[in-house]
Design a protein around this nucleic acid. Structure first.
Length: 318
DNA sequence: AACACATCCTGACTGC
DNA sequence: TGCAGTCAGGATGTGT
């Protein structure tokens, strides 16, 4: 499912169409996609209809759209919290952009009808097979470090929402592609952890955006076993692991995300191409691209860990 | 506090 | 064809 590169591809696809767009109407086909919106589906609709989308922002795997309300500007000035439409793709979510009236997409859970700032009528469709993802309206709060909440292309000029983040995503760490990502600070916490390095890489509160695929790929590139305890890893190894993470994420972003299965789609419903360059994930029994030994898949945390048993060995220190 | 684990869900695909 | 079993890239709450 979607990890940082897929979510960024979606964000980048949504932004040109949705920035400045106004919400006209909402169709809910499955309320479970709104379960994280605590005030209920009716409140979701009532609040969101009429709002204008100010931007599309991402941190890690979270996407949010700061909202502006013409009719409520007076109360906003009086201290009402700023709101954002927050989305998470979970394991199987997609966010598609369609023209009003286009053929239906399977498993569509919510449609948000919008008018773009150029006056085009479009549908933002939230599709989700497993319902682990969802949409919600959430209050924006100040970031703890008073810097940008997340990535968006028009954040260069400070806007009212620049240094805000949805409360529900405030605990999510900056991702390795974030311009304010602090490698030294991450190292300080990383090297004290006794858990296996893969578990630590997947901890969104330490660094965000990495999921099972890119964890396996980065560990393969850095020649680390998934269960190598983080506190046995030297700073130089951590640095090269981080360099691997960054280069893999950047490459995947440049290629528009992975499409290992049919779940991941960009906003036009198209798959990415990164799967051709996977070295570990999904390569069970295939020869390792470095040494030729068969890639192994271990059952791990209710999912899979793919690694080369020759290149990626558990060591006393790494 | 830090860590490990169970749990939330459905649909597509595989193999008998 | 039908059906049971398997699998899936995440996040969170709970218990130790």
């Amino acid at each position: 499912m979607p990890e940082l590169p897929e979510v960024e591809t979606v964000r980048a696809g949504l932004a040109p169409a949705l920035t400045g767009a106004r919400v006209l109407a909402i169709e809910i086909f499955d309320e479970r996609s709104l379960k994280r919106h605590r005030s209920g589906p009716a409140d979701f609709v009532q609040t969101l209809v009429g709002a204008r989308i100010a931007s599309v922002v991402r941190r890690g795997k979270f996407i949010w759209m700061p909202l502006e309300f013409d009719s409520k500007s007076a109360t906003q000035q009086a201290g009402t919290p700023q709101l954002a439409l927050v989305g998470h793709l979970g394991m199987s979510g997609q966010m598609l952009l369609r023209k009003r009236g286009d053929a239906p997409d399977k498993l569509t859970r919510v449609i948000i009808n919008c008018e773009t700032k150029r006056g085009k009528l479009i549908e933002f469709r939230f599709i989700d097979q497993r319902l682990f993802g969802g949409l919600q309206l959430d209050e924006l709060v100040a970031t703890p470090d008073a810097r940008a909440g997340g990535f968006s292309p028009n954040a260069a000029k400070a806007k009212w929402w620049t240094n805000l983040i949805p409360a529900s995503a405030a605990h999510i760490a900056r991702d390795p592609l974030d311009e304010f990502f602090d490698a030294d600070a991450v190292w300080l916490r990383f090297h004290k952890k006794h858990s296996g390095v893969k578990r630590v890489l997947l901890d969104q509160q330490l660094l965000s955006g990495i999921g099972n695929i890119y964890a396996d790929e980065a560990l393969w590139q850095a020649k680390l076993h998934y269960d190598q305890p983080a506190d046995t890893i030297k700073r130089t190894t951590f640095d090269s692991l981080l360099a691997s993470v960054r280069s893999i994420l950047e490459k995947a972003v440049a290629e528009g995300g992975t499409s290992f299965d049919e779940q991941y789609k960009n906003v036009n419903g198209e798959s990415g191409y990164f799967d051709v360059s996977l070295n570990a994930y999904g390569m069970t029994d295939q020869p390792c691209g470095r040494c030729g030994k068969a890639i192994r898949r271990d059952s791990w945390m209710n999912r899979g860990s793919h690694f080369c048993p020759n290149c990626q060995r558990l060591r006393k220190t790494a």
